[in-house]
Design a binder for these strands. Structure first.
Length: 595
RNA sequence: GCCGAUGUAGCUCAGUCGGUAGAGCAAUCCCUUCGUAAGGGAUGGGUCGUCGGUUCGAUUCCGACCAUCGGCUCCA
């Protein structure tokens, strides 16, 4: 796809800033070997090899000052084409470049492009193998900043050497740089870890362990509201709720293929009485055994099971963090056992449930969907018949087209047993987060020997459709916190109504109102503290409580409440309302499409 | 797991170039009874992440470990 000129300019800016960084770093750290340095969405980075020495953020001012000198010198960047042989000669000191040259040659390139920065007789000079594009000269880089250092494996393979990486950002003006930095600061305020603590939704304990979030009463309310909602929708669609244990014999997962592919990720449980179990890493194998518990007819299909249970994965310690990656995940998971003819409609049904659910939360765009297919070069990563895979992938492609999803194809992202339709969201800082998924699976049922009796009286394996609508409650909570900045829709708010007595003369009236609202299934709290009314309002605002009902002598006398909504701009006051009116109002906004 | 950074009161953070620590908010108590985003005062609260080493003495220096954060890798 062709890029808009603006994108190209932007690309060139980042790329040039990176070459400036390279040149500066080379001057400051003799012996530094650059590996690569591409522009990326958020800026640019440079991977390099510097033997024993480490560059740390403390070195940034020094490097940035050197970069500024190169920019101030306004040095030209010139593109040249050279032959592969010449390139080998030019970069003979740098094995990484030689590797790249080999790779490009293998891909059929005969001439390679290089960029020269400055000129050899000047203080600042650099020559690098590079496709471009670049700005005309370094002076066009008007604003930049180095942001992070990190380690990164050479060629992204953890078997390779770890290189050092410096991240930076570059902009056409100082103003845009500052705006970008301010935006990052804003986004950090939405971080679910921060808001989760402020709003008292979940916590961690060093005693319990990392990656094991504890849901507080408020966080639990959100989880249960989500669960109630999704189960209602799915029940209407024909799902039946099941419960399965968190343990199983390892044979279950040997049969499913999980032990082979995810051996390192299994938690094993033993007892002094010679028990040997594993904690379930997925729900599907357990659910297959409910299907297998009796004889099924084609007339029974589709059979749909759902459950919201914990599952456990022994992730690499460095990978866990916040709620997005944990050891114990509460997964909202469901499986449909279908006939071949039913699969397509089933997948469509699941996608439309997902689309409805997220659209209602203002969290849907057709372009966020992706088709996760096989890595065709590595068939050993998957189970099942390649012919079935082909059929599954074709089927998902058709679904995406017929439902007008603007889905991109991600090769290599498929599940162990089949391709998927995934939906990818972005968190506050733009990091991708995958939650809902629909997967077609021809393999599992066959491996478990599942069958139903078809209309000809033959034993036939069903096709399984795996689907997660909420995905994991942990990730879902993280996503919702960041999406709403903690100001949840009324139906999800842990406290829907905060009642604020003006003075403690009014506590009795406040309590009376509270009990009426509680009877109406509205979550309400009365602030009985002896702080001032203003201070109570402030607390409720910080907690992002949707409704504040302020009650003083006036309201008590007239049997009314003064209604205030949470807002930033202090325009929250609605005014005095009859008590019955406010109940109606809250009821209306509790339904999920409102507010 | 790998690279790097961080860890001081419930929270946000200051501080100690080695002589065992301080603020604001929160909490408790007292005064205040308030009209739409912080009323005032007093009090309590920390083996300065854990363990070990160096030292007359370590929260501070060194080491290991634990936890958190940013990346890499991985993600059924």
């Amino acid at each position: 796809m062709d890029k808009a000129p603006q994108d190209n300019k932007n690309e060139a800016l980042k790329h040039t800033a990176e070459h400036v960084l390279h040149t500066a770093a080379q001057n400051l750290y003799p012996g530094l070997k650059k590996v690569m340095g591409p522009p990326i969405e958020s800026g640019f980075y440079m991977d390099f090899d510097l033997k024993e020495q480490n560059i740390t953020p403390d070195d940034f001012p020094k490097i940035e000052a050197e970069m500024q000198k190169i920019i101030d010198a306004d040095l030209p960047l010139k593109r040249k084409e050279i032959t592969v042989e010449k390139a080998r000669e030019l970069f003979k000191e740098n094995q990484y470049k030689l590797d790249t040259i080999d790779k490009l040659e293998k891909e059929g390139e005969q001439n390679l492009s290089i960029y020269e920065l400055g000129s050899p007789e000047k203080k600042y000079y650099d020559i690098d193998l590079c496709k471009g594009p670049h700005l005309e000269s370094t002076g066009e880089v008007k604003a930049f900043k180095l942001t992070e250092v990190a380690g990164a494996y050479y060629l992204g393979d953890e078997k390779n050497k770890m290189l050092q990486r410096i991240y930076g950002v570059a902009f056409p003006s100082e103003k845009e740089l500052n705006e970008h930095l301010a935006l990052i600061e804003e986004a950090k305020k939405r971080d679910h870890r921060k808001i989760g603590q402020q709003l008292d939704l979940f916590c961690f304990s060093e005693l319990v362990g990392p990656g094991l979030p504890l849901f507080t009463p408020k966080g639990t309310i959100i989880k249960e509201e989500l669960q109630k909602h999704v189960e209602k929708v799915c029940r209407e669609y024909g799902f039946k709720k099941v419960m399965t244990p968190h343990l199983a014999k390892i044979e279950l997962f040997e049969l499913s293929g999980h032990t082979k592919k995810f051996n390192q990720e299994l938690f094993r449980v033993t007892s002094p009485r010679d028990h040997e179990f594993v904690m379930k890493p997925v729900q599907c194998p357990h659910q297959t055994q409910i299907f297998a518990s009796k004889l099924r007819s084609y007339k029974d299909l589709p059979i749909r099971y759902m459950e919201s249970e914990k599952q456990y994965r022994a992730e690499k310690p460095g990978e866990i963090g916040g709620l997005n990656r944990v050891y114990a995940i509460t997964v909202e998971d469901g499986h449909s056992f279908c006939t071949l003819e039913q699969v397509k409609d089933e997948v469509k049904g699941m996608v439309s449930i997902i689309r409805d659910f997220y659209s209602a939360l203002d969290l849907w765009d057709d372009s966020w969907t992706s088709l996760s297919f096989r890595d065709y070069a590595r068939p050993e990563k998957y189970i099942g018949d390649p012919k079935d895979w082909e059929q599954c992938e074709k089927l998902l492609k058709e679904v995406a087209e017929e439902m007008h999803l603007d889905a991109i194809v991600n090769e290599g992202e498929a599940a162990l047993y089949g391709p998927k339709i995934d939906v990818l969201f972005k968190d506050a800082l733009g990091k991708e987060i995958q939650i809902p998924t629909v997967q077609v699976d021809f393999a599992t049922a066959k491996r478990f020997g599942l069958y139903y009796i078809d209309e000809n009286g033959q034993k036939t394996p069903p096709v399984m459709v795996h689907r997660a609508i909420l995905g994991s409650y942990e990730r879902m909570l993280a996503l919702l916190i960041e999406h709403f900045s903690g100001a949840f829709p009324v139906w999800l708010s842990p406290v829907q109504v905060q009642i604020i007595p003006v003075s403690d003369r009014n506590i009795d009236y406040a309590t009376k109102i509270a009990s009426v609202l509680t009877n109406e299934d509205i979550r309400v709290e009365v602030d009985k503290s002896d702080s001032t009314m203003q201070s109570k309002i402030r607390d409720a605002q910080i907690q992002k409580t949707p409704y504040m009902l302020i009650v003083g002598d006036k309201e008590e006398k007239e049997n009314t409440v003064s209604v205030r909504l949470r807002t930033e701009e202090d325009k929250g006051v609605i005014g005095i309302e009859e008590f019955t009116d406010i109940i109606t109002r809250i009821y209306l906004t509790k339904s999920m499409n409102l507010w």
